[in-house]
Amino acid sequence: MTLLRARGLSLRFKAIRALDDVAVDLWPGEVLAIVGESGSGKTTLLNVLSGRMAPDAGTVWYTDPEGQEHDVHAMPAPALRTLHRSDWGFVHQDPRQNLRMNVSAGGNVGERLMARGARNYGDIRAEAIDWLTQVEIDANRVDDLPRTFSGGMLQRLQIARTLVTHPRLVFMDEPTGGLDVSVQARLLDLIRTLVARLGIAAVLVTHDIAVARLLAHRIAVMQRGRVVETGLTDQVLDDPQHAYTQLLVSSVLQA
């Protein structure tokens, strides 16, 4: 059974077709990368899939752990919000959008636990420290404010804050964008390891083909609001069929 299933998604912004009859299937534990250039509609697709933006037409279904399918855009707001803070996670390109900059690292990681009803300080703190260690942040930074952290650390803190409730599905919007190359590599490896170890499914938006190759099982290539090609990551990148994908792949600089 799919974890997330979308059919016929369409959305216009005035004259621009941001999404044009898009279908998506995501299976449990699968990482799907949505690639394409700026303006191709990939971030819009991410927002629609995650219920943050309503489409003009089409439906997104999420299958809960009991096997029940839910129409994401017909869900009551409280249920969707509960989903977003328990079963789902969202990793933003700019961690400051998600983190509370005036709350300590430990408080940032613990918030989702407390929102879910955790009421034992010692347990919350222990879990926060465990997660900081997992994202390679020194445990003695637990009481420090995020504003004393580097960009790469902030992104790792955001990931700890998101994964602490063991979500089944994580949406990621350019998670390595805006970071130095060396910092990127470390973060990619961390995401790859955590996602594989926890069996998390993810929808990953990126314009960086190397990121998609490293993290994703499957790729969907978007151009002007349409998915023009989809398939296994290595198949799409090594044997691109669509003219736009061939252009995209051939435009990547070889290191």
Binding site: G231, L232, D234, D239
Partner: peptide, 9 residues
């Protein structure tokens, strides 16, 4: 070889 592996379609 790559087709056998599914790397080429």
């Amino acid at each position: 070889m790559r087709s056998l592996y599914g790397n080429y379609r």
